[in-house]
Write a protein that binds this DNA or RNA. Sequence first.
RNA 1: GGUCUUGUAGCUCAGCUGGAUAGAGCAACUGCCUUCUAAGCAGUAGGUCCUGCGUUCGAAUCGCAGCAAGAUCACCA
Length: 601
Amino acid sequence: MRIEETLQNSITNVLKQLYGIDAEVNTITLQKTKKEFTGDLTLVVFPFVKAARKSPEAVANEIGAAVAENCPAVASFNVIKGFLNFEINKNYWVDFVLQNADAEKYGFKTADSNQAPIVVEYSSPNTNKPLHLGHIRNNLLGWSVSELLKADGNNVKKVNLVNDRGIHICKSMLAWLKYGNGETPESSGMKGDHLVGKYYVLFDKHYKEQIKELVETKGIDEEEAAKTAPLMLEAQEMLRKWEAKDPEVYALWEKMNGWVYSGFDVTYKRLGIDFDKIYYESQTYLLGKETVMKGLQDGVLFRKEDGSVWADLTGDGLDQKLLLRKDGTSVYMTQDLGTAQLRQKDYNAEKLMYVVGNEQDYHFTVLKLILGKLGFEWGKKIHHLSYGMVELPNGKMKSREGTVVDADDLIDEMVATAEQTSKEKGRSDEGTDPQEQAHLYYILAMGALKYFILKVDPQKNMLFNPQESIDFNGNTGPFIQYTHARIRSIIRKSQEQLHVDLSQNPDTASVELNDKEREIVKILHDAPAIIDQAAQNYSPAMIANYVYDLAKSFNSFYQDTPILREENANVLKFRLKLCDFVAKVIKNMMGILGIEVPEKM
RNA sequence: GGUCUUGUAGCUCAGCUGGAUAGAGCAACUGCCUUCUAAGCAGUAGGUCCUGCGUUCGAAUCGCAGCAAGAUCACCA
């Protein structure tokens, strides 16, 4: 039994015996004893002093004495004001290490693949432009939360919904037809998504020129000009043709989307993210339309005079929401009604999770409400994992102002920085395979980037300053990767030079724990609770902060405690076991973040 | 204007369901490589936890009000 549980039980009994207090076991909360006091776990006794009718110190002393009496694992206790600090027997910690050090995934639960899955949608790109830093946060978060939920024992399915249809892609297509001269990714050497993005920008440029011209020559206002500019009319015409499945338009659409997909694939691969299933909006929006029509028939929705279809949410304190335009075409909400159903049908999910920015909070409130009105009970299972925006020092990224941080560029820069940093440290040792070297730079770069993004609480907006490249020192991914590499180096040497047999446990009689070791052991001991907590909060940031604490404590220990130079064979072996345990937990926790850890660096 | 989110050191962030003297990293300043990898360690300095009121034995944490920033309230997605 874990020590917290043992103590909780004992304390519950003691409270009953001493004061007749009936406390639920799980209401007894123990906290970690602060560093400046001696002890491992602390009980705050203030909640019981009233019922006990004694001073906090007296209560703490009485409880402490009784618990120490009953629990062999308690080595001693001390009382400071109303705080009862228990010191746990060294044997408990030592045994804990030896019993768990060899576990491949300490603290991880295994998922039952038969249970209803949590379906996590993330990424959800538009196919008209390449991915940028905002998408990076979404992708890393969605992937990592999925892994986190798996680690906590859930069956998880990762899905992507590609927004492949609509006026935006028509704009790129039109511009390519007009100004592209048949340019392809092959002919230009450009990544497909960037090539298509280039024409999206080009459309906007020419479109703006047309508007300006219209305003100047015809004297109409800008709003009117925007609606009547020939390019816009052509784009809309193209969309109509697309919906009518005009063969030429359709073929072009497939060709250009194909370019984008292969471009995305490269970026996804570099980011290390993947999906179990990919949905395409072009294949789901019709179901949304049908659903709306049915809702209309059932009288849940209503039609306005102009023919548009709406949901009335005024009874829920919200507004009316458009679901079908007067010309019968669908909007964003319409297709989301379709995809949600399809997904529910495909997976019969326990939870439908959407990793989408907080700018769409309103959309998801409405989506759930409308699904409920349409009679879909499972609408309640939708959970919008809402995360904050990535901001630049001068505010939000704006594609029109050219302040977008491109995903591919950023990754390239990170890799270059990693290589440069590595060389400055004189770590580009000769003799190593260049491919291995390149892989190291890549995982360090991605480690820095991923950690930088994931360590921030998802809910909060975060700031990225392109001027100051992401750090490799301090509270960073590479710091943790470095710690891992150091440990692996020690383990290697213990095998190659000292031939220590780690498959046998040491005799623990002579093993004592110094403060640093005890600190590390306690952090390791927390791993299961941290995974649990992080999963409940959908927060990879909690994992990031945990693994940083662990690495930091290890480095402090490493600095002043000899490991390979330890002469007592049992102590040596115990320390190696502890090191190995730390390395594994670092590796596994970083794995949840999607960060690889190197054997050497 | 309504709704939602955020506000902690110069900067970037932790601080979990209320608990002891609010913690890290970066930047600044001091030390430590002949010893297991210095991408490290040890230390100094840096705080009106946005403000006020309330709840509580106890509030950065909970409630209310205010201030500030952001998002949203589209026949965009």
